[in-house]
Design a protein around this nucleic acid. Structure first.
Lengths: 192, 192
DNA sequence: AGAGAGTTTATACTTTCAGTACAACCTCGG
DNA sequence: CCGAGGTTGTACTGAAAGTATAAACTCTCT
């Protein structure tokens, strides 16, 4: 993928709607050209192919997630507080970019095979939460876990599955409400 | 999709390996024909197309999940114990069918658009866990939650994300070990 | 046995797209 | 104003999905 001029970048972002609605393979290059206003030949000038466009879009939104979570992590407060803030920040992304999020749910499984995407998922979420778990074990606000990486993965799964479903696929919840429920689950569990 | 004769059903199950390795679109009908020993023309006699084969496979494995979880739910014991058993049972499926599980992680996002699959996911996991949460609130082993359906979704996300990653994509864990960590997360959370 | 319904399969075909090739044109810094 | 690199239309190639069809085969019922 060649580096995109800013104007082009903005136009291409519109492709998220198509991917969200039909998924990668049901979306034709001609459709992308039509929806973004960028001619097919130009798309092929910048991208290796369709999948490369999807990769670009996912990298963009994962960068948003990374930034949001890094922001939450950088707050002052106990690790526990910052974990709660990170979950809320993550959910707000789904609310802010519903279409891109739906696209994510549609094709992330495939995209995760692309190393760039796998790395970004890790860098955006798994790694910072993993770090928060360790910090929490130090500052005493979180209990130590034997496999913090697994736990971080579990939290990621809980947040994305619930968030994308409740905020984009069948809306009717607000990020704050979902966050309340999820933070309670993650911090305190469901035991009585 | 026509109903499959048992012999055919068994052969077609072998397609899971292909989907697990390459995903739906990178898998050619000719490849499926070669791998299963069922000629292309016969595949089209029974299935509407490629996606229909994927749907069939996912329905099969989701039925396994449904059965396993229903089994765990039918145990005697508190709702809390049965929730723990359900999580372990779910993880054991990933261990028993690693290939089908990888295929799931690859293409479930897309398959979930097919109503049949969405229903089975719900019936296999969300609904029983939802019920367990309510039972737990009654028998006192689980705390009441405001949105039990969201919480059930969260638990589903945590279990599948962690399970598929730790048991099939980068193995090196056993279902029991993962279950210990996840049950602790789900029941008690990570707060100190 | 034999008719007929439904199953199985080979082969050949149509169609739809992804991706390529290329030439013309445009734009902007030196 | 010249040339490099960006932009785009048009035409093409190739791969694979899916369709059509006819022949063969199997099983059941009479």
């Amino acid at each position: 993928m060649r580096t995109l001029p800013p104007a082009m970048r903005l136009k291409v972002l519109a492709a998220a709607d198509l991917f969200a609605e039909h998924g990668l393979d049901a979306t034709k290059m001609e459709d992308i050209a039509a929806a973004t206003g960028v001619p097919k030949a130009t798309l092929y000038y910048y991208f290796e192919g369709k999948e490369d466009i999807l990769t670009f879009l996912f990298a963009e939104i994962l960068d948003e997630v990374a930034e949001a979570i890094a922001g939450a992590r950088a707050t002052s407060g106990s690790a526990s507080d910052r974990l709660a803030a990170a979950i809320l920040a993550h959910l707000r992304i789904f609310e802010r970019f519903p279409m891109a999020s739906r696209a994510l749910q549609f094709d992330l499984g495939r995209a995760a095979r692309v190393p760039v995407i796998a790395q970004r998922v890790d860098a955006a979420f798994v790694e910072p939460v993993h770090a928060l778990l360790l910090e929490g074990a130090s500052d005493g606000s979180l209990r130590p876990t034997r496999h913090p990486r697994l736990v971080a993965l579990g939290i990621l799964g809980a947040v994305t599955t619930t968030g994308i479903n409740a905020l984009t696929i069948q809306p009717g919840h607000r990020a704050e409400g979902v966050a309340t429920e999820l933070v309670a689950l993650v911090l305190s569990g469901v035991a009585a």
